[in-house]
Amino acid sequence: MTTQAVRPVLDAAGAVPEQKQAPAPRANSTGGRWRSRRTVALNVIGIGTMLLLWQGLTAAGAINSFLLPSPVAVLDSLWEMSKDGSLWVNLAASLKRVCVGYLMACAVGLTLGFICGWSQVVAELVRPIIEALRPIPPLAWVPIAILWFGLGDMSAYFLVFLGCLFPLFFGAYTAVRSIDRNQINAALCLGASRWLLFSSVLVPASLPIMMPNLRLALGIGWMCVVTAELIAAQTGLGYLIQQSRMLFQIQNVVAGMVAIGVVGFLMSAAVERIERRVNAWAPSERN
């Protein structure tokens, strides 16, 4: 009967989109491996069929290869761009922007989210501001970004930062609020200092809830960087696409898009991997 009463800070709820994470399915033994092999096979068949169809239709002339170059042509131009280095230079520029913008957003968003999750007063002060800014799409910030920072890295950092900020903030905020109050109490009665409570309880307890948002934010950041580069930069994959379009090198446009897709996929897969490890302890503890 008293447990409700012991949750002063964390429970007096505002209208947050409370997202309870479903426990991640655990990869298990041989059955799981067999299933994953089957999944991979089906995935490959799906993608392979699409590529074959695409290649066949362009070769047969059913698709105008100027409007949509064939997969082989795209692969060819990827190879060319990787040989002359332009692919790598632009990829590196984009990656750097995502990383810097994302880390800045982590520093601000996670910190703010943690503080708001902890203190009702701060949450009530900060949340309306966040809610007011959140619906503005990063694209709408481009003119302001160019005005403030000019064309180049700073504008891109800023746009990535904006795109990542909100999911990171809400990830941390929701996570802290959904931590079991008893675990905090347990740490306190064991004599934990504020720092130990934060580093050894709050952070690890909130990670499993935060991880999907960390991943989501990275995906958004990647989209934002391309957006920024289409308009406000002179390097990067977005810039490569824009430049190729002006030169009517449509196969390079598509090659750039493919590169964006592949890198985005790899980043998401990497984070998912970390996520699974972080969640290893979680399933039965929050059943």
């Binding site: 347990a186 009665c189 690890p204 307890a205 302890w281 979680a282 503890e285």
Partner: peptide
Amino acid sequence: PDASRTVVFQDYALFGW
């Protein structure tokens, strides 16, 4: 709360990680 009085909770409240 301080460490001279420690608590055992009904739901254990062990640190799962």
